[in-house]
Simulated assay, not measured.
Amino acid sequence: MPDTRPLDGKALLVTGAGGGIGRAIAIEAAKAGAMVVVNDLGATLDGHRTSSAAAEATVSEIEAAGGRAVTNGDDVSRPEGAQAMVRAATDAFGRLDAVVNNAGILRDCFFHKMTSEDFDAVIKVHLYGAFNVSRAAADVMRQQNSGSLIHMTSTSGLVGNLAQANYSAAKLGVTALSKSIALDLARWNIRSNCIAPFAWSRMTSSIKVDSPEQEARVNRMKEMLPEKIAPLTLYLASDIGCETTGQIFAVRNNEIFLMSQSRPTRSVHHSPGWDFNSIANYAIPALRESYHALDISADVFAWDPI
């Protein structure tokens, strides 16, 4: 008989849960029995604070369905904000079993036009945010001798994308952070994994439509609902997922991918040692066959979502 409440008694913190993927995860987690801290500071897409109305709406929906949830409006980019949201979980529920690092902003532009402020703001929310919240949660989870940290990454970082140097750098950094957390905290039964979600949300709604091909791509993305990201997230948060750690997944509608991690693909050896000419004449010609193309996420995931 299927388990309809695999998170019964668990306390989850979901950042950026006022809308989109975070909201869907928070609502589905509550249906699965979890008590949820719904964090959202009510920021615009580029990170400017507005109101907490979105987080409150998510909490109201959870409570209307008979679940338990509390609102938190702290900023993931600030260590004290992360500590406050973790305290919100322990104060309300007495524990913290899983964190979903989902909060994010975008400030897209081509690299030669990107300002230091635009780069810094995106890194602060995505990479610093994942560190800050995970670091604050780790102290509680170590005392419990258990926990799950789930970080939203992106194929913009894993593969590449145009006009997203800040976002791509942050999201690839999140995968390295997750692997380090998985290694360092394994002794306390704390696991750490990443999900690269494909879903139509506030983040993807900013994609520019300037060609028929781009319009077709956006229309395909609109078919990928945020709710599709929730099942894998809940699995990774559950006790049943306790043996999965240090992995990178992607979810694209009804497809789940286990993504590769950097490993050597080809090598060359030269007994006398390498100099400029031997590299030019032997090493690079031998290695060139395994070069990666200058592709973007849409080139790699080129088929229609199933």
Rank of each mutant, 00 (worst) to 15 (best):
Pro2Gly: 05
Ser267Val: 09
Asn161Arg: 05
Ala82Pro: 04
Glu56Thr: 02
Ser260His: 12
Ala199Arg: 02
Phe198Thr: 01
Leu158Ile: 12
Asn189Leu: 09
Arg23His: 13
Pro6Cys: 06
Arg263Phe: 06
Leu149Met: 12
Thr244Glu: 15
Ile25Glu: 09
Pro264Gly: 09
Pro79Asn: 04
Ala121Glu: 03
Arg263Thr: 13
Gly66Thr: 10
Leu13Trp: 10
Ile248Gly: 00
Arg5Asp: 07
Phe249Thr: 00
Ser116Phe: 09
Ile240Asp: 08
Arg220Trp: 13
Trp200Lys: 05
Arg288Asp: 09
Asn281Lys: 14
Ile25Thr: 13
Gln261Met: 12
Ser206Thr: 13
Asp91Ile: 02
Ala138Gln: 07
Met35Arg: 14
Asp118Gln: 13
Leu177Asn: 00
Ala121Asn: 11
Ala11Ser: 09
Arg68Asn: 08
Ile207Gln: 10
Leu7Asp: 00
Asp275Cys: 10
Asn281Tyr: 07
Val122Ala: 11
Ala54Val: 06
Thr58Tyr: 02
Asp3Ser: 03
Leu149Phe: 05
Arg107Asn: 08
Ser178Ala: 15
Asn253Asp: 15
Thr90Trp: 08
Pro285Tyr: 03
Asn277Phe: 12
Gln214Tyr: 03
Asn39Val: 12
Ser52Gln: 04
Val36Trp: 00
Ala199Met: 10
Val100Phe: 14
Val133Thr: 14
Ala29Ser: 11
Asn277Ala: 13
Glu255Arg: 12
Asn281Glu: 15
Met1Asn: 05
Ala103Val: 09
Thr245Gln: 06
Met224Pro: 00
Glu227Asp: 13
Ala43Thr: 06
Val300Asn: 01
Ser238Trp: 01
Thr244Leu: 15
Gly20Cys: 11
Ala283Pro: 01
Asp74Arg: 06
Ser192Gly: 09
Glu117Phe: 06
Leu12Cys: 08
Met203Arg: 07
His112Leu: 14
Ser51Lys: 04
Ala54Asn: 11
Asn132Val: 05
Arg49Asn: 07
Val99Tyr: 02
Leu41Val: 07
Pro2Ile: 14
Pro2Ala: 12
Gly73Val: 11
Ile296His: 02
Arg87Tyr: 02
Phe110Leu: 06
Ala30Cys: 12
Ala103Thr: 10
Ala34Arg: 04
Pro272Met: 13
Gly246Asn: 02
Asp40Trp: 00
Ser211Leu: 10
Arg107Phe: 02
Val99Asn: 02
Asn72Ile: 03
Asp304Ala: 09
Ile150Arg: 00
Asn254Arg: 14
Arg191Cys: 09
Asp275Arg: 09
Phe198Gln: 00
Ser146Gly: 14
Leu294Gln: 07
His126Tyr: 06
Thr153Trp: 00
Val159Arg: 01
Ser205Thr: 04
Asp139Thr: 13
Pro79Ile: 04
Thr115Ser: 15
Arg135Val: 03
Asp239Ile: 08
Arg266Gly: 03
Ser211Arg: 07
His151Leu: 14
Arg135Lys: 14
Val140Ser: 05
Asn161Ala: 12
Thr44His: 09
His270Gly: 10
Val36Asn: 01
Leu12His: 01
Ala54Leu: 11
Asp139Ser: 14
Asp8Gly: 05
Asn161Pro: 04
Tyr282Ser: 11
Lys124Leu: 08
Asp40Tyr: 01
Asp239His: 09
Trp200Asn: 06
Asp304Lys: 06
Ser178Asn: 04
Ala283Ile: 04
Ala103His: 09
Leu185Tyr: 07
Gly47Met: 07
Leu106Phe: 03
Trp274Ser: 08
Ala169Arg: 04
Thr244Asn: 13
Ala98Val: 00
Leu236Ile: 02
Ala169Phe: 05
Lys171Tyr: 08
Ser77Asn: 06
Ser271Gln: 14
